[in-house]
């Protein structure tokens, strides 16, 4: 799979438009390409990257819609995450996947405290380690930040305008994908958290 993609790239001319195919076969091939690219990628694929494998005039949205229809009976679906798309298994199959391999929990491999810090970053981004220290009442180690960064759940944001100009942290599209959100708006409403006394988190 991965090597196929590589070979396709090596060819000097990658035929995006497929002008020599009849219209229906061309559409079919574009659908297959999009599915292949999404299948091969563990993280959401941005629109621009997908647009590169289909004809310049082709509507990516229509292609994605057709792909979604095609996958209707399958245990996985095409999901919009942030500004891109990915293939993911349908929630109904989570128990089966867990029973087979416990994939989800192990893949992330983060402690409860790590996840609490991640949640604080998600809600308060952009936030620096000092900001996190104020929330948790203790130093947040560089190791912990490193664990989140290595999993591409967070990235660096703007610097804070004070001594030392510390970097802040922001969540990434991988974060959204991991927690099944299309955008940060899917985070629980801060006002609800206020009401239930969880605002400090």
């Amino acid at each position: 799979m991965g090597s196929d993609v590589k070979n396709a790239r090596k060819e000097t001319v990658f035929d995006r438009g497929l002008a020599d195919l009849p219209a229906d076969l061309r559409w079919r091939e574009w659908l297959c390409r999009i599915e292949a690219v999404l299948f091969a990628s563990a993280s959401p694929v941005p629109r621009d990257n997908l647009a590169r494998v289909v004809g310049p005039g082709a509507s990516l949205d229509l292609l994605i819609e057709d792909l979604a229809v095609e996958l209707e009976g399958r245990p996985y679906e095409v999901a919009q995450v942030g500004t891109g798309w990915m293939l993911r298994t349908k929630p109904a199959y989570a128990p089966a996947i867990r029973a087979a391999a416990d994939v989800g929990g192990k893949a992330l491999n983060l402690s409860e405290h790590d996840l609490a810090v991640l949640a604080a970053i998600a809600f308060h981004q952009p936030i620096s380690r000092d900001g996190l220290k104020d929330i948790f009442g203790k130093e947040i180690s560089r190791d912990l930040i490193g664990r989140l960064a290595v999993r591409e759940l967070i990235g660096t944001g703007p610097r804070e305008p004070r001594r030392g100009a510390p970097y802040t942290f922001v969540t990434t599209d991988v974060f959204l994908a991991t927690f099944g959100m299309a955008s940060l708006r899917d985070l629980p409403d801060p006002e609800q958290l206020d009401d239930s006394g969880l605002a400090a988190l």
Binding site: Q125, T156, G157, P158, E160, P161, V170
Partner: peptide
């Protein structure tokens, strides 16, 4: 601040 204190090509965060 978010816009001007982010290095070129960086992520200024959701509001920035």
């Amino acid at each position: 601040d978010a816009l001007h204190l982010t290095r070129a090509g960086g992520d200024p965060g959701p509001a920035g």
